[in-house]
Design a protein around this nucleic acid. Structure first.
Lengths: 215, 215
DNA sequence: ACCGTTACCGACTAACTAGTCGTTAGTATA
DNA sequence: TATACTAACGACTAGTTAGTCGGTAACGGT
């Protein structure tokens, strides 16, 4: 093996020096941080690991963030985008109530299979106490918003005579709770086999149908 | 301030040297470890902190455990005791189905308000990957066992004509899921106000009644 | 082609902590 | 009380890592 200027393809020994604008480098850093933090937790993650994965050195990283905690904060803040329920679209594209419920459950379960979302959830649970402000913000923007939207959607269905006025209409979080259960399983036991995920999804749908469908 | 032999009551400067048998010291160490680990996570917890809280020095702690990971392992193993559902007792002491559901939900929610259980759950989620064997054991002993018992209980109720044959009878985990949701909230946002806990409990009961009670 | 800006490098330091080990001192038994 | 046993001490070592800083090189503007 020639030890010349570019040992190259072995195990990238020195991708010379790549100069990127902050606008393109920072997302790379946050992507790397998400992987590293969620794999090892906050304390066990080394700045050098994040930097290496983002394609620069520690010193370079410090040009963009003043410390480890600032990286963490920026990471959580980036994931604050609320997954807005397309209420109108759901109502429009669902022939009947059962279809609507299936769409709804599928949207919720899609979040579970999204690795970035899972990683963020794990960080939120295990390291969230570091940044109570960010967590509170996340609660408002994501959780409360989703509860609210679910409530609006369901009350509209009731008004339109599409479904019964069940307990879950007044407590939309009950609709989310099976997803919470599955999330906990995934966090504690690792990724569940597709079969179990499908069973969970189907049981979830069935229960909601039982609760909401007109008899 | 006299720097004599016992500055005593200031900030306990030297509770001289207490010699305890392993049988009494080890539980103290595990109690301390639960507090420290769940407050700061595995990596951020120092051996000295655990030792200090347990009332001895680091060297003393190493007389009982050969390392930090062994303490952690012993801690999780200690909490493996399954909270067995008193099925017979539940059936005997419940006048009607609604009362039985209320008892059931109360048992589940009692776990949530138990600080030691919450701390263990947090550790299991955030640091469980360190000890996959212990986590798998916990799953068998606790989660699967509880699902099984719930299934037995509900099927018996159906057979005795006490309740409908709902989806949740075939998927008992759905009954647990609202508790999972509340658990996540507690872990992410800290202890919930009693009012919200009670609302969650009531909504849970109402939903189960809707699903199970004969019409 | 020159030049100023600034993203990036990497060796260094300062701080922290898991684990060690020779010593000390409670406690039980005689 | 004398003695043996061992829980507990605490200073020390060795290894790790967050953050610093003087210098380097890529890029845009002229």
């Amino acid at each position: 093996m020639p030890a010349s200027d570019k040992p190259a393809d072995e195990a990238e020994t020195r991708p010379p020096r790549q100069r990127l604008s902050p606008d393109t480098r920072i997302p790379l850093i946050l992507d790397a941080a998400l992987v590293e933090f969620s794999a090892r937790g906050y304390n066990a993650t080394r700045i050098d690991d994040i930097a290496a994965r983002a394609g620069l050195s520690k010193g370079g990283l410090y040009a963009h963030f003043s410390g480890k905690d600032k990286v963490f904060e920026a990471l959580l803040k980036r994931s604050l985008v609320a997954p807005v329920l397309e209420i109108e679209s759901l109502l429009a594209h669902s022939a009947d109530m059962r279809t609507l419920i299936e769409h709804l459950v599928d949207i919720l379960h899609a979040q579970l299979t999204n690795p970035a979302m899972r990683a963020t959830a794990r960080l939120l649970l295990s390291e969230g106490h570091r940044l109570p402000d960010v967590v509170a913000l996340w609660r408002q923007n994501t959780l409360d918003a989703m509860h609210f939207q679910l409530g609006v959607l369901l009350r509209r269905c009731v008004t339109q005579g599409l479904c019964k006025d069940s307990t879950v209409v007044r407590h939309p979080w009950l609709i989310l709770s099976p997803v919470a259960h599955t999330l906990i399983q995934q966090l504690a036991f690792g990724t569940l086999p597709p079969k179990e995920l499908r069973q969970a999804r189907d049981a979830h749908v069935d229960m909601l149908c039982e609760l909401l469908l007109m008899t």
